[in-house]
């Protein structure tokens, strides 16, 4: 028999107040090491450029290099400090939650976002890890739905990433073949499919 009980909106699972999983503790150090390498490379390029400008025949160019040096040093100092400190601020604010039907990822310090990707929309998953990631035993998990709205969860432990990937793949398959218990009967009518009556809008709007 086709049963289609109405779903009270208050009972819908909320994506607020979740128990967020933190990223791997080494991830901050991995990002800092990456930042340090970048700082060193940019510093080396800057030094070479300064020496070339100084060593040239043009006297005006030499004066310009000296004038530029102070500004460049200040800018470089600010840049270096910020990208070295940034991971300490940003990483604790990232986190992920895997639920039965979707995977959520939160990120952002100033602009904070929480993104949810339902498993029955995921096309495929990917794990990758760069040289630095492997040095710290880390891996990144990407989850791709159709279009461009996927997750790239960086800084997971290698084991965690693999376990998550396996779980996500299993969930994708389960969602694709088996209808959930409450959806066992075919939903011929799109209106009743959600179990929502027309006046049963999800939101009582204040805006």
């Amino acid at each position: 028999m086709f049963i289609n009980p109405e779903v009270p909106l208050e009972s819908l699972p909320s994506a607020d107040n979740l128990d967020w999983h933190a990223l791997h503790p080494s991830f901050v150090r991995r990002l800092q090491l990456g930042a340090l390498i970048r700082v060193l490379v940019i510093g080396a390029i800057g030094t070479v450029a300064y020496l070339l400008m100084q060593g040239g025949d043009s006297e005006a160019m030499g004066r310009f290099a000296d004038w530029l040096l102070s500004y460049a040093l200040i800018a470089f100092g600010v840049f270096a400090a910020s990208i070295l400190i940034w991971p300490v601020i940003a990483v604790p604010r990232r986190g992920y939650v895997v639920r039965e039907k979707d995977i959520l990822y939160k990120t952002g310090v100033l602009w904070r976002s929480v993104k949810a990707v339902p498993f029955n929309r995921v096309q495929h998953t990917k794990i990758d890890s760069g040289l630095l990631d492997r040095r710290f035993g880390l891996a990144n998990l990407s989850v791709f739905p159709a279009g461009a709205g996927g997750h790239k969860i960086r800084g997971l432990g290698t084991d965690t990433a693999e376990r998550l990937r396996v779980y996500v793949s299993e969930r994708i398959e389960a969602e694709a073949i088996e209808p959930a218990d409450d959806e066992r009967s075919p939903p011929p009518d799109p209106r009743t499919e959600a179990g929502a009556a027309p006046d049963n809008g999800p939101v009582t709007d204040a805006g």
Binding site: L12, A15, P187, E193, A194, P202, V203
Partner: peptide, 17 residues
């Protein structure tokens, strides 16, 4: 409103066959 719309949208996607 945004959170409830998100939760409801997820529900519709996840329960849709």
């Amino acid at each position: 409103v945004a959170s409830r719309l998100r939760d409801y949208m997820l529900y519709r996607v996840e329960s849709s066959q």
